[in-house]
């Protein structure tokens, strides 16, 4: 499964009254199954736009996106995690987590429900099933948000800076947490971030984007033992080497 997710020569323009803005230009890459890929780039370059394209929320001006050999449609199961957990404050954790099943009318499906229970048990949220989001810490809430997406058994997880709203300590531990859950559940994930260290600590590969219109500057393979936690990976000797490489790519002005 070398080409689980494929973006084929994608370009995208935004249309405003003032004119047309080319946001993405010739974006072409693929992601393997169970791979963890990060996208880094200067702010406002269109990282989130790429996620919107993969999730089908946006359509490209040209080119196509294929997931598992098929075009993305409304029914393709995609997991999306945002900067904020976006839990609904009026729902209990359980009802928040199962909202996807509700939408897909699987609320009475025994198999799906036992999967939900499994996930809640495995990741320590079972005791908080009937709590409301306001009663949970930021890290727990983000974990609940992840389980919410996993309940639908998504084909791919899209992470849009999911740690950037947390304070530094929490960020590191939640990052470990989320990474281990994703690995255990054999998920394919794409993380968008502006934090180079974060990207190196979790990814198998990093895609570096240029300023707008965003093109791919380079794709860097990260060869640090995948069995290590992100926190441990930060301590590995290669870490700073990769940091240097990517930092230089990001700041270089060559076109």
């Amino acid at each position: 499964m070398d080409n689980y997710l494929q973006l084929k020569d994608i370009s995208l323009s935004y249309h405003t009254k003032e004119g047309e803005v080319l946001a993405l230009k010739n974006i072409d890459f693929s992601v393997k199954k169970n791979e963890f890929v990060s996208i880094v780039g200067p702010s406002g370059c269109g990282k989130t736009t790429i996620l919107s394209l993969i999730s089908g929320l946006l359509k490209p001006s040209s080119g196509e996106v294929l997931l598992d050999g098929e075009k993305i449609t409304k029914d393709t199961s995609i997991g999306y995690m945002f900067q904020r957990d976006n839990l609904f404050p009026w729902r209990t954790i359980y009802k928040n987590v199962t909202i996807g099943l509700e939408i897909k009318h699987q609320k009475k499906d025994k198999e799906s429900l036992s999967h939900v229970d499994d996930l809640l048990n495995k990741y320590g949220l079972h005791d908080f099933k009937n709590s409301y989001p306001s009663q949970l810490s930021g890290g727990m809430r983000q974990r609940a948000a992840l389980i919410r997406t996993l309940c639908l058994k998504p084909k791919i997880l899209l992470l849009d800076e999911p740690f950037s709203a947390l304070d530094y300590q929490t960020k590191l531990s939640v990052c470990d947490d989320v990474h281990s859950i994703i690995t255990k559940e054999n998920q394919t994930a794409i993380l968008v971030t502006h934090d180079i260290s974060e990207a190196i600590s979790v990814s198998d590969r990093i895609i570096v984007l240029s300023k707008r219109p965003a093109t791919i500057k380079c794709i860097q393979k990260i060869e640090i033992d995948r069995a290590l936690t992100p926190l441990k990976r930060r301590e590995s000797p290669e870490f700073s080497k990769y940091f240097d490489l990517i930092y230089r790519e990001l700041t270089s002005e060559k076109k």
């Binding site: 919107s52 999306y80 939408i103 897909k104």
Partner: peptide, 13 residues
């Protein structure tokens, strides 16, 4: 919140 609407849409709502 736009993000919450996107979330719902990403789940096929």
């Amino acid at each position: 919140d736009e993000d919450k609407i996107s979330l719902m849409r990403s789940m096929g709502a």
